[in-house]
Design a protein around this nucleic acid. Structure first.
Lengths: 204, 204
DNA sequence: ATATAGTTTAACCATATGGTTAACAAAGGT
DNA sequence: ACCTTTGTTAACCATATGGTTAAACTATAT
């Protein structure tokens, strides 16, 4: 064997690659910058990941693996629709604090490379709306929700929670808020958004 | 003078540059591809726009000039809040049909280059929330709206309308819809979204 | 017709960039 | 001690890329 099976290097590369890819995208990222940030030689990137494309895919998969559980909290959890909305809305901001670039990164790269989603959908743990759909229909039938399509409701939940982070620079400019103000706005949304949605769909 | 002051060439360049920049972003765009698409020599790009950066800025400004009136329809129109919500929601999809890449393009490039927004804000016609804010406060005071911060309401309106197009590939995958289905979902949102918002904020 | 000035092109240039190679270092097995 | 395998580096390579240049072209004014 060789010197202590250095999975440390691989981790350093992935961390550096994550930072660079998520900040600049596939096209804007530079292998040299990733190497520098990881504190290693550029050849090591190819030794561990063969090509920029494969390194990118590793970073992308990691990122999606972190996002998927968030989505499944809405789609496949056992709580009621109202509870899901409250929980997701309250939790999502904490997720963003830990992984601020992920949603934007995923959305952006999927737009650039639509075929990419096919690989993700192959994975059996890919979030799926079917269970959520049944649940919404049931709650409508038993009268606890006003009629709404599950897809539309899901889109609304995602939109209200995810968009403010994806479009942060634009919204900050339009609303004349600085970073401090914006943080407060987002903090307020933890409860605001859930109420906004539930107001609209709950039967009285 | 020379042969008929060819502003045709400039227009062809801008159209080609728009397509390439909006599809691939600043970093992913190639001057050669823009030249090919415009059917001209690469040197012409520099003759008319000096550099990739300046050509990009021209495209970006054009794009923002098209988006700004949409935003002002919410922020600076004279109709009531309820009317604005209905109109914006109904009109926004038509805007997207004409300019499908614009919102994503703006959001993406502003995230990549946050200083960029400063130039935009200098422009006196840059959309501003102040008038909308006063209006929301008035309608709350006279009892036609439930209490909500103008900023939060504006963010919600934007999110519900813009996000489904920005995150289209992701949402299509999560909801198991093809292009046809998705188009129908968006069509339904023309009325769905306005009702969803108004349901939530209108006093009974 | 000729000069003039804006327009267009082919060829060129310097550098950036993803990727490769060959040599070397370190550690374990024999 | 020596071989083998793995990790690491510096130097190198081919190509892509943004940008420049000098010459050719074209319409118009004189």
């Amino acid at each position: 064997m060789a010197k202590k099976k250095d999975e440390n290097t691989e981790a350093k590369i992935l961390e550096a690659a994550k930072q660079v890819f998520q900040a600049k995208g596939m096209a804007g990222a530079r292998m040299q910058e990733i190497a520098d940030k990881a504190g290693i030689n550029k050849a090591m990137l190819h030794y561990y990941f063969r090509s920029k494309q494969l390194l990118f895919e590793a970073v992308f998969s990691n990122a999606f693996s972190l996002l998927a559980p968030q989505l499944n909290a809405v789609l496949n959890d056992d709580s009621t629709i109202e509870e899901k909305i409250k929980n997701f809305t309250a939790n999502y901001i904490s997720f963003i604090v830990d992984h601020p670039y992920i949603p934007n990164f995923i959305i952006q790269e999927l737009n650039r490379n639509p075929d990419f989603i096919l690989k993700l959908k192959d994975n059996p743990s890919f979030p799926n709306i079917e269970k959520f759909k049944k649940q919404v229909d049931e709650e409508i039938e038993n009268g606890s929700l006003k009629p709404i399509s599950a897809e539309q409701l899901f889109i609304n939940i995602m939109a209200l929670n995810v968009f403010p982070f994806v479009a942060k620079p634009l919204i900050m400019a339009l609303t004349n808020t600085d970073d401090e103000d914006y943080k407060q706005l987002m903090e307020d949304r933890k409860s605001e958004v859930a109420n906004f949605i539930i107001n609209s769909i709950k039967t009285t």
